[in-house]
Amino acid sequence: MRVEGIRLSLGGREVLRGVSFEAADGLTLILGPNGAGKTTLLRAMAGIYRPDAGVVEVEGPLGYLPAEFFNVDMRVADVLLAGGGRLEKYSWWLNVVGLAGYEERIFSTLSTGEKKLVLLAKALAEGRTVLLDEPTANLDPAHKALVMGLLSRLKKVKRFIAASHDLDLIDVADSVVLLRGGTAVQLRPEEVTDEELSKTYGARIRSFRLDGRRVFALDF
C-alpha cells in the first residue's frame, strides 16, 4: 500500500503538497500538529477526496474508524450492521474490544470512549487494512492499554494506518510518518528523535526510557 506525491486543496488552501509514504505490513503511524492534514490524508485514502495529483494505492477490504461521526440514536447492533453484514461476526469483535453484551444499548447514550470502541469493533470486523483516526483519544488508561495491546497483536494479521497525537503509539508502530507543512517524512520508530518531534510540533518534547518504554515530557 502506498501514497505517492498526492496534492490536495480544500477550501482554496493546499493542505497536502506532495505527500508520499509506504504502508507496509504492520502499523504505520501518522503524526503531525492540529490541522496538519492527517484526517485529510486518511479521507483521501478512503476515496472521499480525489487528490489534485498523485496516486493512492490501497488494498481492501478497508475498515475506517472516523474521529468524528454522527451521534445516531440507533441500537449498537444497528450501528454495527449498518452497510450490511452478519451480527455474529460483529458481536465477536465487540467482545474483543471489551464491550460484550452492548448490542441492545442505544449508541447516542454511550460515553465518548464507548462510542469509539463500538466503531473500532466495526472497523476491525470490516477491514483487512484499517484506517484509524485518533484510535486512543478519549480512552481511559485501561481501555487505552487494551487498544494498544490489541493493535500490537492484530498488526500481524491486519495492516493499520493510524493518525494520532498519542506519542505512546510510537512504541507500537513499525513506521512513522511525520506530517509538517503539507509534506511528509517517513522514519523508522527509532529514528523519531526528540528533535524530530520538537520540530514537527514546534514545542520542546523530551523522552526517557522506562522499562523499555518511551515516556514523554512536555516543557511549557
Partner: peptide, 19 residues
C-alpha cells in the same frame, strides 16, 4: 435501510464500504 443507516453514521465508513 442498512445503507441509509451507514450514510447517517459516517461519510468515511460509507466511502470504504463503496457508497
Amino acid at each position: 435501510a442498512r445503507r441509509i443507516d451507514l450514510v447517517a453514521i459516517s461519510d468515511e465508513i460509507s466511502s470504504v464500504r463503496g457508497i
